[in-house]
Structure formats: C-alpha cells, structure tokens
C-alpha cells in the first residue's frame, strides 16, 4: 500500500505494522466486517417479518393456519441452531436446484441421486456453474439471510405472540365497543401497543443474533472469525513477507472489543426505543415517565 513497503523485513516496528495492517489479506478482513454488518441489517427486518407472520398465524382463529404458525415456532425453536445450519442450507440449496431442474430439463433421464452424488442437469445449477464468483457469493449470502431469518423468525414469533397476548383485554374490548372490525382492532389497537411488551424479548434476540454471526462460516461465508483465525495463524517467511508467530490471541481480542462495543451501542439505542414506546402506556415504565413529567 505504501511505497516503503517493498521490503518489510528492513522496517522499524511502526512502519512494519502500517504495512502489515494494509496488506491485501487484511483488506479482506476489514471487508468481512462490512459483510457481517450487512447481514445483520438485512436479516433483522426479514426475521422480524417472519416472526410477525408466525405470530399472526399462531393467533389465527382458523385452526389450520394456527397449527402452521405454532408448528413453525415449535419445530425451529426446538432444533439446535448448528444442526439447522448444517442440514438446512444443503437441503434448501438442493431443493432450489431440484425445482429448477424439473422446470428447465423435463427430458432429463439420468437419476438425480447417484450414490452420494446429487446431480441435476448443468442448466439447473443454482447459480449456474459458469456464473462469476460474485454471483456464487451473493447466493451464499442469500442462503445465509434466509436461514438466519427462519431461525430467528421463530424466536421472534414467540416473543411477538407473547406481546400480543399481553396487551390489556380492556383495550381490545373498548375497540370492539366502538364498532371496529377484528382487522381494525388488530392493526389500530393491538399492534401499536404490543411493541412495548415485545421489545425486551426482541432486544435479547438482537443481541443473540449479533453473536450468532460467526455461524456464517458454516455456510461457507468468510466472516470476521474466519479471517481472524486465518490472519492470526503462524506465518513463516517462506510464504509471507510478514512472518509472525501465533497471533490469534490479538486478533480475537480485537473481535472481543468489536463485539462488546457493538452490543453496547445496541443497548443504548434499544434503551431509547424502550423509553419512547413506554410513553403514555399503562405499564410501570409509562407510569414512571408520567410521574417524572408531573414532578
């Protein structure tokens, strides 16, 4: 990166470090932070909407819909994350390919399963074998978002379901007395008020989601933990201009700081959101705010 970096072995410590920390491989490390942040930014709203749909269907008066919602919550919450991540992604990927295979190659006669091999016609590969690498990576990212969203959506569904049940019955009765339909009651009275009950649970989930990002490597995405392990590993002078012993401790220390500051910032933000939601609510938090204002 800098002009003096041509021969790192001759540099003093400070300059050596500036060169070392700007190598191409470190740039990949920095980029992986953006990747993790992007994943969180995309996954959180998607998971929340999965959760909302799950909670809505679990509350549905129609039995089959309610079973569907409750089944989703029960199954996904009950399966260990790591098993889900290892099994589900391969299954999801293969089912995409199988569906596409049946559409684009109806005349294919070879069996799709040959021993251990899973073989669809080359045109049905998702993404196509000829696609550039970035398409493959984007697809991997998409699979990751879907998997994370399904897992965390189930937890969010349970939290939102609880939030909906916690809204005082009197509120809903009043709405009915005003002649609101079921739908109007749901959207105008129940949903705006449930957030204050759901937020503590949702903020827990957000924290867990932040910490779950290292599971990304199971999905073949090179996340920050992968790069920290790779960069911190012993480098010998034969294969690197920056030989160093096992430095994984320092890299992991950096990750520790990153995760701690990220969760701290989240805490502060969530605290503010909670204050705002409590405003004018018949909860002890809302009550405290009223006293504060009148005092």
């Amino acid at each position: 990166m800098f002009s003096y970096c041509a021969d790192p072995s001759t540099l003093d410590t400070f300059r050596w470090l500036t060169c070392y920390l700007t190598t191409g491989v470190h740039m990949s490390f920095y980029k992986s932070f953006l990747l993790v942040l992007a994943l969180l930014a995309v996954t959180a709203p998607v998971a929340l909407s999965f959760g909302f749909l799950g909670a809505m269907s679990a509350r549905s008066p129609m039995k089959p819909v309610s079973w569907l919602g409750k089944g989703y919550i029960a199954i996904v919450r009950g399966v260990p994350d790591i098993a889900f991540f290892l099994f589900f992604v391969i299954a999801l990927d293969q089912s995409f390919e199988l569906i596409k295979h049946n559409i684009v190659c109806p005349d294919w006669t070879d069996p799709i399963r040959q021993g251990n091999d899973f073989l669809v016609c080359p045109q049905a590969k998702v993404p196509l074998g000829t696609s550039p690498e970035y398409v493959h990576q984007l697809y991997g990212f998409l699979l990751a978002v879907i998997t994370f969203a399904i897992v965390f959506g189930a937890f969010a569904a349970n939290v939102l379901y609880g939030g909906m049940q916690a809204v005082p019955r009197a509120q809903l009765e009043t709405a009915e007395a005003y002649g609101m339909t079921r739908r109007q009651t749901f959207w105008r009275v129940l949903v705006p008020q449930m957030w204050v009950y759901a937020l503590p649970g949702l903020s827990n989930l957000w924290m867990v989601l932040i910490k779950a990002t290292p599971l990304l490597f199971l999905l073949g995405i090179e996340d920050i933990v992968y790069w920290a392990r790779e960069l911190g590993g012993t480098k010998t002078s034969k294969f690197s201009a920056y030989p160093h012993p096992d430095w994984r401790m320092w890299y992991f220390l950096f990750l520790l700081i990153f995760y701690l500051s990220f969760t701290k910032v989240s805490e502060v933000v969530l605290e503010r959101v909670m204050r705002r939601l409590n405003k004018g609510q018949a909860t002890s938090g809302g009550e405290a705010m009223r006293k504060e204002a009148s005092a």
């Binding site: 191409g24 491989v25 000829t130 790779e230 010998t236 294969f239 690197s240 201009a241």
Partner: peptide, 25 residues
C-alpha cells in the same frame, strides 16, 4: 450452456505449501 466448461476447484487455503492465502489475500 455453450461455455459450460467452467470447472470449480475446491481447496482449503490453510495448508502451506500445498494451498494457502498469500499477503495479497
């Protein structure tokens, strides 16, 4: 389809000198 000759080669990238990630990433 015509250029379906792309072969994807899988490697670990953590086992020098067989395969590893160099300074340039």
């Amino acid at each position: 389809f015509a250029m379906a000759d792309t072969v994807r080669m899988g490697t670990e990238g953590a086992y020098p000198p067989y395969n590893f990630i160099n300074d340039a990433g």
